Amino acid sequence: MTDAQTQTALNALRIDRSAAPLKRRRRLRWLIPAALLFAVLVLLGVSVARRALTVRVAEVREPLPGEQQTELSASGYVDSRRRSVIAPMIAGQLVEVAVEEGEPVEQGQVIARLDDRDARVVLDRVEAEVRAAEARLAASRAQGFNAERTTERTRTLARQGAVSRAQLLDVETAGRAALEALNLARAQLVVARRVLEGARLQLSHTVVRAPFDGTVARKLADEGAVLAPAALSGTNLGGIVELVDLTALEVEAEVSEEQLSRIHADQPALIFLDAFPKRAFAGRAALEALNLARAQLVVARRVLEGARLQLSHTVVRAPFDGT
């Protein structure tokens, strides 16, 4: 082998150092975006890991009785057929309220008392007037008895000629006047006794009693309030408490007119109360008159059988059976 061939072979085996920087630059060009992408993925993974997981919980229960065959479902409120704002029959200042909200009361139980000082003064004066009328009546009776005896004696003397006719007439006139005075005293005593009854009645009105068995739903006034004689419609003027009868509960549900044909009177209904979600109360529908202001009908006013609640205006659902 000649020297020229040997040199050519050696040059072929020599490493070209000029191509190395170009390969490095190509390698770095792909490595930097890959590193950035990896960093972004790591940040996303950390942020997802820190977030709270959202879990949806669904309640699974068996259908309540009557829900399988429901003709119509309506919402409404529980109310009482007997509801009254208790107010005094006379004006006065409230000095005592003997009940609290939610407290059951019996018929005739004292609910409140008004200041009775003026009523007692009037009663004492009228009692004195009655005693005076009784005394006047007693005096008139004595005068009448005396006038009657004088008239009989004068008539006897007149028949004997002992007294003149004019004297007899004067005595008889005095007798008739005594009789009229006796009648007047009797009438005055009757009037005085009637006034006494009125004074006693006014005194009794200072004590406010429950007109029926029920529960105090609202307390409308406290001690010191000056009350009007009676409650006005739509206001609490003069009212002390609101009393409801929780043994006569009913449901008032609203049903649109297009659904009304699906309900008839005495149709069975199940009533579910928000306060007692696991209990079903039996009831029956009772249709009422059309309310033109809202173009809806009020349905299902009926006593809840076996339901004794402690609150009124409870939200209810009332499914109506298809039977």
Score class of each variant (00 low, 15 high):
residue 17 R to I: 06
residue 144 G to Y: 10
residue 134 E to T: 10
residue 154 T to V: 07
residue 61 R to C: 03
residue 213 D to S: 10
residue 250 E to H: 15
residue 160 Q to R: 14
residue 23 K to A: 14
residue 76 G to P: 02
residue 74 A to V: 02
residue 121 V to H: 11
residue 76 G to E: 04
residue 219 K to S: 08
residue 299 V to F: 11
residue 307 A to E: 07
residue 48 V to S: 10
residue 110 V to E: 12
residue 265 A to E: 09
residue 177 A to F: 04
residue 236 N to C: 06
residue 146 N to P: 03
residue 55 V to D: 06
residue 297 L to V: 15
residue 56 R to I: 09
residue 196 L to F: 07
residue 250 E to R: 14
residue 231 A to M: 07
residue 138 A to D: 15
residue 297 L to S: 07
residue 312 S to D: 09
residue 132 A to C: 02
residue 320 F to G: 00
residue 157 L to V: 09
residue 74 A to I: 05
residue 215 T to A: 01
residue 76 G to Q: 03
residue 187 A to Y: 05
residue 254 E to M: 11
residue 142 A to I: 04
residue 45 G to F: 15
residue 109 Q to A: 10
residue 45 G to D: 13
residue 303 V to K: 14
residue 247 T to V: 03
residue 83 R to A: 12
residue 82 R to S: 06
residue 49 A to H: 08
residue 256 S to V: 12
residue 87 A to Y: 09
residue 81 R to F: 13
residue 255 V to E: 05
residue 235 T to W: 01
residue 215 T to N: 02
residue 162 A to S: 11
residue 128 A to C: 03
residue 207 V to P: 01
residue 291 N to K: 11
residue 120 R to L: 02
residue 69 Q to E: 10
residue 19 A to V: 13
residue 136 R to S: 13
residue 158 A to M: 07
residue 1 M to G: 11
residue 172 E to W: 01
residue 312 S to Y: 05
residue 299 V to E: 08
residue 141 R to K: 14
residue 46 V to E: 09
residue 38 F to L: 15
residue 1 M to R: 09
residue 114 L to T: 02
residue 136 R to F: 04
residue 296 Q to D: 07
residue 193 R to C: 00
residue 196 L to P: 01
residue 250 E to M: 12
residue 122 V to A: 15
residue 174 A to K: 03
residue 8 T to S: 11
residue 95 V to W: 03
residue 313 H to Q: 13
residue 190 V to G: 08
residue 318 A to T: 13
residue 1 M to C: 11
residue 124 D to E: 14
residue 105 V to G: 00
residue 272 F to W: 03
residue 158 A to W: 05
residue 22 L to Q: 12
residue 172 E to L: 00
residue 48 V to C: 02
residue 19 A to D: 09
residue 266 D to S: 08
residue 295 A to L: 14
residue 230 A to S: 15
residue 69 Q to T: 10
residue 66 G to K: 03
residue 67 E to S: 06
residue 19 A to F: 02
residue 159 R to L: 09
residue 274 D to H: 02
residue 205 H to G: 03
residue 296 Q to L: 10
residue 224 G to D: 03
residue 233 S to K: 06
residue 189 L to N: 06
residue 66 G to H: 07
residue 268 P to G: 04
residue 237 L to G: 04
residue 82 R to W: 06
residue 49 A to W: 12
residue 4 A to V: 12
residue 305 E to T: 14
residue 285 A to Y: 03
residue 80 S to K: 04
residue 255 V to H: 02
residue 11 N to M: 11
residue 81 R to K: 10
residue 124 D to K: 09
residue 252 E to W: 15
residue 57 V to A: 11
residue 15 I to H: 09
residue 256 S to E: 10
residue 70 T to C: 00
residue 236 N to G: 03
residue 290 L to K: 11
residue 54 T to K: 10
residue 256 S to Q: 14
residue 218 R to C: 01
residue 29 R to F: 05
residue 38 F to M: 13
residue 137 L to S: 07
